[in-house]
Amino acid sequence: MSIETAALPGLPQPDPSGSAAIDVAHLVKFYKATRAVDDVSFKIPRGSITGLLGGNGAGKTTTIAMIMGLVLPTSGRVQVLGYPMPEQSDRVLGRMNFESPYVDMPMRLTVRQNLTVFGKLYAVPDLRERISQLAADLDLGEFLDRANGKLSAGQKTRVALAKALINRPDLLLLDEPTASLDPDTADWIRSHLEAYRKTHGATILLASHNMLEVERLCDRVIIMKRGRIEDDDSPAGIMARYNRSTLEEVFLDVARGRVHEGSAPIGAAAEGAAAHGPAGESA
């Protein structure tokens, strides 16, 4: 009964070759009177790891949700892997995946059952082999046949990551991927993500409050504040501009509105951000 089709009539056909993995232009999202995301634009090249930073209510989750198509923007456009979202999401959703603390895997199903269901949803070939491989990679073997609800927080995070990798995505969106993990496991997960990026040429967009993680993993950092982009550069470039030796110090400077002598946050967003009232993520 599979009748997958090639094109949607009436819509402009994109040229995905060479396009950015994520191309966001003038994205705005209002929740009633609250401006959660305010004129955000960025392009994320394929094969890169980009960190999305910002305090609570900065607009990270809403931005990621709009990229995934879970939230519709008030205005602006989103292209993922060369296709407009959500208009052509059917061409893209099978090639991306995500992990987020605002969703869970079904608790009564075992880890193996959960991965089987999602593997089938994504039409993963050789699913048993893929699950065995993920179990080995993410050390899920000892609890593969245990109900998800009976796992520790750290184990659940690893299972959620396994689900996010089940379809070998070209684009991976991760919201706090190492939250609840002990330092050893978190470090191991980061290594796994780096290796995955290298072997698959995947693009990763990562929202995190762990600055060491971002420094280690990311080629580029986008800092958001009050729904706008406050800064956008490589971790080293940002730290140099703020005269700081760690991203954590930069984060605190941005969050508390401290601008050091000689520091020069890029873009007009910096000026604009101060003019806005408080904006919160609906999530």
Binding site: L70, D90, L93, V103, M105, L121, K163
Partner: peptide
């Protein structure tokens, strides 16, 4: 689990 399903194909 709805978010997982909505983001799937």
């Amino acid at each position: 689990n709805l978010g997982n399903l909505m983001m799937s194909p």
